[in-house]
Design a protein around this nucleic acid. Structure first.
Length: 771
DNA sequence: CTGAAGGCTAC
DNA sequence: TCTCGTAGCCTTCAG
């Protein structure tokens, strides 16, 4: 490329030269450059697959020479991609037509007519919310209100790949329903099928997330529409209702409720307090009340200036994770919405006062605490098991119900059951100490535990060691969370060893994620003793119970993790693999071995064939290779003739007979070469160990020692607390017992008469003697 | 690819 | 042939 840059601008670039670079750097099917044959000054990038052409100006050519080929190719590749998306998304989008093939849509009668501007499309979180909305729509009328249910979390369209965007039914449907053109600049809404969108989600943080994702969708494709105030609206519903006699109050935010709660001096006796989790809690009648008072329950989103753009981008641009860390760190609960007594909300305010609460709770539920190594749902499980003094085995499905009730767990029980199962697993690569017992099929290393049986078939109970690790005497020292007047699990437990290092953790939040490997509990204990004796911690490397491979520090600061392989003694053409790297599951590994045998896994497992005959024809002409296959899945060299498997429940054992090529290339090869070819190495990073500390502040820990250090000093303080607590109890017991003894002695010595003495008089005597 | 969440569809 | 329960799928989020 240098030679192109150096010389005179125009004439130097020859099509074939550029072409080579382009094939290298650009996803090859997208652009195919050629010069205008007459002037030699206009570069044409021909999109071979989609038949469109870009003619590049002189100015572009100048830039082109200045900045180099690659950037521009990439730019145009992107432009092509966008055009492709636009084209496909826009096919069949028309204003004046009834929508066909979207059975769940309840179209407004006036949608797509001359009166479409007055129509509102209600987007709901799920089908049940839709039926609630439909009950409400009876009040405001079907002529100008339509309704469409979303299936949970909407795609974040901002950096979505074309394929993902085009395969997303949700996105396609909304576009169709609105009759909106991707890439078109809308100054007004007359040409749309609906004049506005009203978002109706559960009033929990996940609901805020969904609102945000919808805003993001509109903002990304139609920034001009975002600027039309009132185009996007939300419908809010109360989260708490209280009633006493004929007095009724509805609260839309927690602070609002708390104000009321304080205003009656926390005396809620006689008041009926009802929490509305999710829209499904409301009855049809209530829905109709909300809609009858739609001015109270409707809030318009408002765009004022670039700050609003920036807020939305801060929330949804993928690479802004670091900015989000800052944003979350700076947040103060006082900044949250206190009430919703307004009819308009700026996008910045939505993001910074409401949406942020989702991001915070996302971290809270996904990232563990240093003190006990648990995430809230895991802690709830343990708390409930302790509370129930769980000794006998219990069906997982049953336990989850108990937990939900006693620890105020408000999410889906499937999710909770999944967490219980994960806590009880004990195959290699799962837990080093499983706090719960796996009784029944809890999954194996064949599929990383995904093959566990359904929660209604399997049983669990507390592992015996669990109560040793989480000492009963510490329970009273913990600060419990109070929710809805109910004492639930503590902010954190404090086990006698740092569980976070024993079982590790993985979690993905917002702005933050975490990844902590597992360590050897005995080594940790030894290390803590070492600290007591010598004042320092030794360096530790990750350790997995039952793992027979090696884990060694590499020069990048992470740990190489290599499986075990040998050439079979009786038959040196057979490679025997008896251990795979941590978290490589046997089933997945077999797929790799089969590729070495020449079997390619079926490309599209969903069986969704996407024939593109048109694109193929165009592609042939330009003489390009079949890019998608050649680029993405390079065929493996076939070196394996036969695979035999002798696994046991916790041990891997493959015997791999190589073919001629395999013997020639690998029989005498170095270990490194074999390890690479057979994918027997993975690395365990320790560079993203994030957790909440004792003050519930999220922090990243640079190394294991810093985690140990913090745990150690906290545990020391709490041993003192525990000692004091036990001493206080024992002193009290002692006092009681010695007084009892004194009393008995006094009776024996006949210093106190108990027979035929009135209770009142006896007490009098006792008080006198006591002093 | 990981895992705690939102949700529905296909079987 | 229809209904019911649920396994299996889609989505977010960071590295």
């Amino acid at each position: 490329m240098e030679h192109i840059k150096k010389k005179d601008k125009k004439m130097i670039i020859k099509p074939h030269q550029i072409k080579q670079h382009m094939w290298v750097f650009v996803n090859s099917a997208i652009v195919n450059p050629s010069f205008d044959s007459q002037t030699k000054e206009t570069l044409t990038l021909k999109a071979s697959k989609f038949g469109s052409t870009f003619n590049l100006s002189d100015k572009f050519l100048k830039d082109f020479l200045k900045t180099g080929i690659v950037d521009h190719c990439m730019k145009f590749a992107k432009a092509r991609e966008e055009l492709k998306i636009k084209k496909e998304l826009n096919t069949g989008v028309k204003k004046n037509s009834k929508i066909l093939g979207v059975p769940k849509l309840e179209d407004a009668n006036n949608a797509g007519t001359r009166q479409s501007e007055k129509c509102t499309l209600i987007l709901t979180e799920g089908d049940s919310a839709k039926s609630l909305a439909m009950a409400g729509i009876e009040i405001v009328g079907r002529d100008s209100y339509g309704c469409f249910p979303l299936k949970g979390k909407l795609l974040n369209v901002r950096e979505a790949k074309a394929s993902q965007l085009l395969n997303n039914e949700e996105i396609q449907n909304i576009i169709k329903i609105l009759g909106i053109q991707v890439g078109k600049n809308y100054e007004e809404v007359k040409s749309l099928r609906y004049g506005s969108i009203m978002i109706m989600t559960d009033s929990d943080t996940d609901g805020s997330h969904i609102k945000g994702l919808i805003i993001n969708f509109i903002h990304h494709f139609w920034p001009s529409l975002i600027k039309i105030n009132g185009f996007l609206k939300e419908f809010i519903t109360p989260i708490i209702k209280v009633s006493k006699g004929n007095r009724n109050f509805s609260f839309y935010t927690i602070p609002e409720y708390k104000n009321w709660y304080e205003s009656i001096n926390r005396n809620v006796s006689g008041w009926k307090i009802k929490y509305y989790k999710g829209l499904g809690t409301s009855t049809d009648k209530e829905a109709q009340e909300y809609f009858a008072n739609i001015e109270r329950n409707k809030i318009e989103f408002e765009y004022r200036n670039e700050e609003d753009d920036e807020a939305i981008e801060l929330a949804f641009v993928k690479k802004k994770a670091d900015a989000r860390k800052q944003w979350l760190g700076d947040f103060d609960q006082k900044n949250a919405l206190q009430d919703v007594n307004f009819t308009k909300i700026r996008y910045t305010d939505f993001v910074n006062k409401e949406f942020i609460l989702y991001s915070l709770s996302d971290n809270q539920r996904s990232i563990p605490n240093l003190c006990d190594g648990l995430k809230p749902s895991e802690r709830k499980i343990l708390f409930a098991c302790f509370k129930r003094k769980l000794k006998n085995e219990i069906k997982v499905a049953q336990l989850s119900g108990y937990i939900a009730e006693h620890s105020a767990y408000h999410h889906g029980e499937m999710s909770l059951q999944g967490t219980i199962v994960a806590m009880a697993q004990n195959f290699v690569g799962s837990n080093n100490i499983n706090l719960l017992l796996p009784i029944g099929q809890f999954g194996t290393r064949n599929q990383g535990g995904k093959e566990h049986a359904s929660a209604r078939y399997i049983f669990t109970s507390l592992n015996k060691v669990t109560r040793h690790l989480f000492n009963e005497h510490d329970d009273e020292l913990m600060k419990n969370i109070i929710e809805e007047g109910q004492k639930i699990e503590p902010h954190w437990f404090l086990p006698i060893l740092p569980m976070i290092l024993i079982n590790g953790a993985d979690g993905i939040g917002t702005g933050w994620s975490t990844s902590v490997p597992c360590y050897n509990p005995r080594e940790i204990a030894e290390n803590i003793r070492n600290k007591i004796a010598k004042g320092t911690f030794n360096e530790m490397k990750p350790w997995y119970k039952g793992y027979t491979g090696t884990i060694e520090k590499n020069n990048k600061g992470s740990y190489d993790n290599i499986g075990v392989f040998n050439w079979k003694e009786e038959d040196p053409d057979v490679l025997v693999i008896t251990e795979l790297p941590i978290k490589k599951w046997t089933k997945d590994y077999k797929v790799h071995l089969e590729r070495l045998m020449g079997y390619e896994p079926a490309k599209d497992s969903k069986g969704k064939e996407k024939p593109k005959p048109k694109a193929k024809k165009n592609a042939e002409k330009t003489g390009e290779e079949d890019d998608e296959v050649s680029e993405k899945s390079k065929k493996e060299e076939i070196i394996v003739e036969e695979i035999r498997e002798y696994h046991t429940s916790n041990k891997v054992h493959f015997e791999i007979r190589l073919n001629e090529a395999g013997i020639e290339n690998y029989r005498k090869a170095s270990n490194d070469k074999i390890i690479t070819k057979f994918k027997l190495k993975t690395t365990i990073p320790t560079s993203n160990m994030v957790m909440f500390d004792k003050d519930l502040k999220i922090r990243k820990y640079p190394n294991v020692e810093s985690i140990l250090e913090e745990f150690y000093s906290l545990r020391l303080v709490y041993y003192t607390h525990r000692k004091n607590y036990l001493l206080t109890n024992m002193r009290r017991d002692l006092e009681v017992l010695s007084n009892k003894a004194r009393f008995i002695q006094a009776v024996v010595d006949e210093k106190i008469k108990v027979r035929n003495v009135k209770k009142k008089d006896l007490i009098k005597v006792l008080v006198q003697q006591g002093n």
